[in-house]
Amino acid sequence: MEFLKNFNIAFAKGDIAFIVDSITDEIIWKIIGDRNIEGKEKFIQEMEKMQSEKSTELKIDQILSHGKEGAANGIIKMESGKKYAFSDFYVFQAAKGTKIKSITSYVIEIQ
């Protein structure tokens, strides 16, 4: 659970180095209702695009982890004032691993 906390903090801060070290080369990121990103290079490109808007606050409500799966949800606030509720589901390369092989994200803009 500590790993997922750190991963979410790195994501909010735009710490691409930490994130790159935390994913497999074959990462699949499904952003429900938007797009699928497959492979480490495309994942990095997407992270770099997201650098244009910085987050100002991250509130993690829950983190769960069991075996090869984990989940986190919360709210992230951006510099623009927009707020998003998110729920991410993770599949790890191995139990007790620190390499993520897939992420399924649900993101909703909130007031």
Rank of each mutant, 00 (worst) to 15 (best):
I100A: 00
L64K: 01
A72N: 11
K82W: 03
V91W: 01
E57K: 14
G70I: 05
E57C: 08
Q93H: 07
G74F: 10
S87D: 08
T56E: 14
S102Y: 04
K96N: 14
Y90A: 01
Y90Q: 05
A95K: 08
L64W: 09
H66T: 07
S55T: 15
D61M: 09
S102C: 06
Y106R: 02
G97R: 06
T104K: 13
T104C: 10
E69K: 07
S87M: 12
H66G: 02
A94Y: 04
S55Y: 04
V107R: 05
I103N: 03
G74V: 14
Y90R: 05
K82Q: 12
K99C: 00
T104S: 12
S102L: 09
V91Q: 12
S87A: 11
G97W: 09
G74P: 11
K83S: 13
G70S: 05
A95V: 06
K82F: 01
G67T: 05
F89L: 12
K77A: 14
K68V: 09
E69Y: 08
I103S: 02
K99F: 02
F92P: 03
Y84K: 01
V91N: 07
E79D: 15
D88M: 08
S105E: 12
G67Q: 11
K83H: 01
H66N: 11
E57A: 09
F92Y: 07
S80V: 09
S80A: 03
A85E: 14
D88N: 13
S80K: 02
E79G: 00
K59L: 13
K82S: 10
K68S: 11
G74C: 11
S105P: 03
Y84F: 15
K83Q: 15
G67M: 11
S65Y: 01
L58M: 10
G97C: 06
S105F: 05
F89D: 03
S102M: 13
K68Y: 00
F92E: 07
K82Y: 03
F92L: 14
E79N: 13
S80N: 06
I100G: 00
Y90M: 06
